[in-house]
Nucleic acid binder design. Structure first.
Lengths: 216, 216
DNA sequence: TGTTGTGAATCTCTTCACAGCT
DNA sequence: AGCTGTGAAGAGATTCACAACA
């Protein structure tokens, strides 16, 4: 029961903090200061403290934060207690990479089914996960009460897949297809657009060079 | 020669606008209004106009923006005139997916070399791109004056790869490995962290359900 | 009329700075 | 002394709202 709504960036950072905390716990560290956590997570001490305000966790002056408890507190906000089941649509290069990447990484997030329009893939286990034909999407999603879908199909099929996921009851979509998807306001959409990310990097890399030249 | 520095989100949206504009141009559309472009790009009309202020492009009341010229103007800011060469480090699942995804998509952004620690991959063409052994990284990057690198190796190798890329002269990094990388301030780092993106989606999907329950 | 460009207001996010605690 | 929690300031991003224009 969140005390208040967490904002987008805060959620992303809490996820990072938890990852760092788990590593610290595994190393036997029991307490951590905000500036240490910030350093390991790539942020600032003030921001760490501000983010932790958001989940109502309190540390102790001169001792810092209890590593294990803080990780647990973050999980209390981020995780569904029974775990979140996810479906992955599209088993091409991107879909398989995502599947392999996510497999067994986060116990509370499991991909329970995948879908592909290729009939040769359907019916088989791919990377340990059953692959269904596209026509079974609505059925699997609604019967298993799936709330999250991942779209890894080509751009021209993405809107159709999004519509079908939404219709089947999904409330959040992680999209890897380039382009803009329209979803109802009650569905959270996050698009990881590789091309755009690379164009951003190329732009700022060039800016960096131009600044260096300007200084010279 | 940018009139002013563009900010992160503006650059990302300009990239989206351009993609939309190119599609419109291919469909024979010659003029577009800010609210139309906004609709196609998933934003607001005011934001489109504000973003275009940033690149100094002016439209005309009652006619809107010249599709072809605007696309060209955006390219003038985002692209290096001679194109940007990129290297990709790590040819596992993620690396190959990124390579396949990017191949031929943006003519001004080309992956000219890839690297992998697996000696069986090195020396071969993978997806049309020469794959080198890791030890040649510094040489290839510095000799070809590569400014942008993509990291697609496992988390425990990512910092080492980042260090080597930076040392070889890269100014921007697109990172797919989970975790925090340290790079000098003059290097632009963009991390696409799939796990964190999925945790965000799962969180907000759950929030959406809780709001629906609260309303009922 | 219906659009653009933009100052001003608003909203969101980050950083500062310091009282209060141990 | 050295840390946390947080009000307040600052920076950044978005939206409002309207004059100017075709």
């Amino acid at each position: 029961m969140p005390i208040q709504d967490l904002r987008h960036k805060t959620v992303a950072r809490l996820s990072i903090y938890r990852r760092v905390l788990k590593r610290l716990a595994a190393e036997g560290v029991t307490y951590v200061f905000s500036h240490e956590l910030a350093n390991l997570a790539g942020g600032t001490a003030a921001q760490v403290r501000r983010d932790l305000m958001g989940i109502g966790y309190e540390g102790k002056p001169t001792r810092g934060y209890d590593v294990a408890r803080l990780a647990e507190s973050i999980g209390f906000f981020l995780d569904h207690p029974e775990g979140t089941n996810v479906v992955l649509v599209g088993m091409g290069n991107v879909g398989r990479a995502v599947m392999a990447f996510l497999a067994g990484r986060r116990p509370k997030l499991s991909i329970v089914a995948s879908f592909d329009s290729d009939p040769y893939k359907a019916g088989r286990l791919i990377l340990g996960c059953p692959c269904h034909p596209m026509r079974e999407l609505a059925e699997v999603v609604s019967e298993q009460r799936i709330l999250v879908g991942i779209i890894a199909v080509p751009a021209d099929a993405a809107q159709d897949v999004a519509d079908r996921l939404v219709l089947a009851g999904v409330r959040g979509i992680l999209n890897f297809a380039p382009g803009t998807l329209k979803v109802p306001r009650h569905v959270y959409l996050e698009t990881l657009d590789i091309t755009i990310a690379l164009e951003k990097v190329a732009y700022f890399a060039r800016q960096s060079v131009m600044e260096a030249v300007a200084r010279a």
